[in-house]
């Protein structure tokens, strides 16, 4: 593994809306190191999701270059596992067969598949529902399946697109603790997009604030909180101060935002 997991150099992205060129991202430069948990926050229109879609290889930038472990990105691949907000599970496949999808494509035999799938099902707390269909699961469980399915392919970076945005507050906190624990257990690198600043500060080792219309990197901050975080961390003065200052930045960057 190189010293840099993911690198964006001068990445810009234009799109056409009713015949008009619009710039979604404007010369974004970003470097993600191995084992980082980088959270990208920004108001709507800041191009957060566009950024993730570019890294995933689902869309190509108008200009600039994106490299993963030194290799330029030419399309989507299992080295960049992607988790959407909701609704991306294969509804006809059981939990374990959803998780095994990427391994089936690689041609792994059944024994090797189930050894790997079993580990990630245990890690995400899904062992007991392994034979259930997605529609029989709660929203939180469905997101765990999506995370396990991406991780089993051992991606260089795990991409999370507002992964807990559709969950109720309690489930969301459970999932935040779980993804922290998974991040520490597996040693994976995470790039997560969210509009929830509290979530970003709680989960991230680093937080990037995007400005809106066009999206630009407005701030890039290390989060100086201890590795070991619990829900109590969210009430600590250091946390609250960080959260408030980043929320102010997001608000200041929001086009037409009203300052309190």
């Amino acid at each position: 593994m190189g010293r840099v997991t993911l690198e964006l150099v001068d990445v810009s992205m234009d799109y056409r809306l009713r015949g008009k060129e619009k710039r979604a991202l404007d010369s974004v430069n970003l470097t993600v190191s191995p084992r980082e948990f980088l959270c990208v926050v920004g108001a709507s229109g800041s191009g957060k999701s566009t950024l993730l879609s570019l890294v995933a290889g689902l869309t190509m930038p108008t200009s600039g270059q994106i490299t993963i472990e030194g290799h330029p990105i030419t399309g989507p691949g299992p080295d960049r596992g992607l988790v959407f907000q909701a609704g991306s599970l294969y509804p006809w496949r059981t939990v374990e067969r959803n998780v095994a999808f990427g391994l089936e494509l690689l041609g792994l035999d059944a024994a090797e598949r189930s050894r790997r799938v079993d580990w990630y099902l245990a890690e995400t707390g899904l062992a007991e529902v392994r034979r259930s269909l997605p529609r029989q699961l709660s929203g939180g469980q469905q997101q765990r399946v999506a995370i396990a399915r991406a991780l089993v392919c051992e991606p260089a970076v795990l991409l999370l697109d507002e992964p807990f945005g559709a969950l109720d507050v309690q489930t969301k906190e459970d999932m935040q603790l779980l993804i922290r624990q998974i991040w520490r257990d597996t040693g994976t690198t995470v790039l997560m997009v969210t509009h929830d600043v509290e979530e970003a500060v709680f989960l991230g080792t680093r937080v990037v604030v995007l400005a809106s219309e066009p999206g630009r990197v407005a701030a890039d901050l290390r989060i100086p909180l201890a590795e070991d975080r619990s829900l109590a961390t969210k009430r600590s003065p250091a946390f609250l101060e960080l959260r408030a200052s980043i929320e102010d930045m997001v608000r200041a960057q929001h086009r037409g935002g009203v300052t309190a």
Binding site: A56, G57, L58, G75, P76, G77, P78, R80, G81, L82, F84, G87, S88, Y90, F101, G102, L105, L106, A146, R149, A150, C153, L159
Partner: peptide
């Protein structure tokens, strides 16, 4: 067929 299902399949290496 939902777009997300197709996109996610590509990211899983399909």
């Amino acid at each position: 067929v939902p777009r997300a299902l197709i996109d996610v399949s590509y990211t899983l290496g399909a």
